[in-house]
Computed example of a mutant assay.
Amino acid sequence: MIRLIRVLLLSIHFFISSFIGLLIGIVRPFHPTNSRWCAAIYSSLAMPILGIKREVEGWDILDQSRPCIVVANHQSNWDLFIVGGAVPDRTVSLGKKSLKLLPIFGQLYWLAGNVLIDRGNPHKAKEAMEITKQALTQKNTSIWIFPEGTRNQGKNLLPFKKGAFITAINAGVPIVPVCCSSYLDHFSLGQLNNGVAKIKVLPAVSTQGLKQKDAAQLMHTIEADMLRTIQALDGKAAPSADSVDNQA
C-alpha cells in the first residue's frame, strides 16, 4: 500500500513540478538559474514523499568556487530529487541530447539552460564542450557533470570519463567534487522510512597551470578521493528516524 501511494503521489508531483518548471523556462529561457529553481521544485516535495532525508556538508564551497565544474556520483534517477536540492545558483548540467525528446521534462531541461551533447557524434560533442567552456569563462556559470556517464545503481563508482577534467583544464576553472552516500542500500518504495542521504562537498581542486596531458592524473586523483569519501559517508548513513535535513 505504501508503494502504491508513493507512486501515485510522485506521479502527480512530477507532472505538476514539470509543468511549473516548463513555465519558468518559457518566461526566461536558458537562464542559468532556471536549473537550480527546477531542481529545488522537484526536490522539495519529493523528499518527504520518498521518506528520505538529506544532510549536506560543505555547501559554502560551491558558492565560493563559482564558476567551476561540479563532478558528482550518479546512482539512479532518484538523484533528481535527492541530489537536486543541493544544486547551487547559476549551475547547469551536462546531459544527453536524447533527453530533449522526453515529453515535458525534456523541453524543461533544455529551456533550463542545461547543455545537451550528442555522445555518438564526436563533432557535435566537441561543439558542446566549446559551449560549456564559454558558459564557464564568459557567463559565470558552473557546470554539473556526472563523470561516470551513467547510473552506477549505488555500487561504488564506475570508471570516470575524462571530458569534465579536460574541459575544466581548458577553461582554467576549479573542480568541486560532490559525494552522495549510497542511499539505494537502504531505499525501498515499500518502506516508510528510507533514512538519510548524506552529501559532502569536497574542497575545490585547482586546475591552474595544468595541461591536457594532466587530465588523466587529475581524474584518477579526484575519483579516488570521491570513492574514499563515499565509503566514509556510507559508514554514517544508516537509516534514522531522528535525522534532520540540514540542507542550507
Rank of each mutant, 00 (worst) to 15 (best):
I24Q: 08
I117L: 14
D118M: 06
L227V: 04
I69K: 06
G154A: 03
N77W: 12
N194A: 04
A215F: 10
S44V: 12
I82T: 08
P239R: 01
P29Y: 08
G195I: 04
M1T: 11
M129S: 09
R54Y: 03
K100L: 04
L9K: 10
S206R: 11
P174W: 00
F81Q: 09
G113W: 09
Q191W: 11
L94E: 05
V173P: 01
I20Y: 05
F30P: 02
S188E: 04
L22S: 07
H74L: 11
R151F: 08
V173G: 04
I52V: 14
A72L: 06
L218T: 02
T137A: 05
I24P: 02
E223K: 13
I222F: 03
G163N: 14
L80I: 15
G85F: 04
V205M: 02
N77I: 12
G235N: 12
L99E: 00
N193P: 13
I117R: 04
L99R: 07
P29Q: 11
V115S: 10
V56N: 00
P103E: 04
Q64C: 01
I131Q: 15
Q191F: 09
W59S: 04
L111F: 11
K126D: 11
N121L: 13
I230G: 08
H186F: 13
D118G: 13
D63Y: 10
E127W: 05
L157D: 09
V83T: 07
R90D: 11
I169M: 10
W59G: 02
K161L: 11
L108H: 06
P174E: 09
N170W: 03
T167Q: 11
D225E: 15
G113H: 04
S240F: 07
F30D: 07
G190H: 07
I175Y: 00
F14V: 07
S188H: 07
Q64S: 05
D242I: 03
P159Y: 01
G195M: 05
G195Y: 06
Q191R: 15
A164H: 08
T141C: 08
G84P: 04
A224W: 10
P174L: 03
L62C: 00
A40Y: 08
A237Y: 13
S243N: 08
S181H: 05
Q75E: 11
K200V: 08
